[in-house]
Write a protein that binds this DNA or RNA. Structure first.
Length: 252
DNA sequence: GCGACAG
DNA sequence: ATCTTGTCGC
């Protein structure tokens, strides 16, 4: 009698995205975002989830807060969580957001003075099928400025990884160079950024919430020691470390 | 059937 | 996301 479960779920999720989408603030809202050296910015956050091999249900949700501009670790929180929602492209937020939000809420409860002034999210923001990726979702629900940084290009709204895209990547000569990811509509949904001199493979930056695209790109570059911005990289490293420690490889 | 598919 | 160490190159 019932339709395939995923179909109804996806429709429900689509309408929820459309509703929350209206709450995204696409521009700069903070004073530090408007000055060249980001003076006034002292804490940047990063979130990530790591999984145990062969297990897509149990994961470690990680939050880190780093000092800015030194990028030293000020706070870290690892929490094992049980994921219920499936991963469906375009709906990553429904799988991950609840647990990332809980991490931020624990911090607000226990050490509110350490709350980050901006959060880097592993995934896209407005650069998304319906312009509402994980970074927007977490931004709206937390109310915090968020930046989406994806390691792989999502082919959406007319943005393709074709020869044109490849040649644009080749033209990125040094860290900080970027080019726009423009939708068929003409709207710039994000930017491909060469985040440091060493890596020729760009990262894909887009607005999550309460920040402009240009500011997001500039800030991302300023937080990169390696290809992936330090807050996300630290969150990734620490969550994997946590899993290694608490769930050692179950070999013979 | 083929290709795409953030994490 | 994860499977995977050393290795070739700058």
């Amino acid at each position: 009698m019932s339709a395939r479960p995923a179909e109804d779920l996806v429709k429900q999720w689509e309408s929820e995205q459309a509703l929350l989408r209206q709450q995204v603030v696409e521009g700069d809202t903070e004073d530090w975002q408007r000055v060249p050296d980001f003076s006034g910015l002292q804490r940047v956050g990063g979130v990530d989830l790591s999984f145990i091999k062969g297990d897509d249900v149990n994961a470690c949700a990680q939050l880190v807060v780093l000092s800015y501009p030194d990028l030293q670790l000020l706070y870290e929180d690892s929490q094992m969580v049980t994921l219920t929602a499936p991963y469906i492209a375009g709906f990553l937020a429904f799988r991950e957001t609840p647990f990332l939000l809980e991490s931020l809420q624990r911090l607000e409860r226990d050490q509110p003075q350490l709350l980050p002034q901006v959060v880097f999210v592993d995934g896209n923001g407005l650069f998304h099928y319906r312009e509402f990726g994980l970074a927007c979702h977490l931004g709206v629900l937390s109310g915090l400025p968020c930046v989406g940084v994806a390691k792989n290009l999502l082919q959406v709204q007319g943005v393709n990884k074709d020869e044109e895209h490849q040649s644009q990547i080749t033209a990125l000569q040094k860290g900080g160079d970027s080019f726009p990811l423009t939708a068929t509509s003409g709207k710039v949904l994000g930017k491909a950024l060469r985040s440091c001199n060493k890596s020729s493979k760009p990262v894909y930056v887009s607005v999550g919430h309460r920040i402009s695209l240009d500011t997001a790109v500039r800030l991302t570059h300023s937080c990169c020691r390696y290809r992936v911005p330090e807050p996300i990289r630290q969150a990734d490293c620490l969550s994997r470390e946590y899993l290694r420690k608490h769930f050692p490889a179950a070999d013979t």
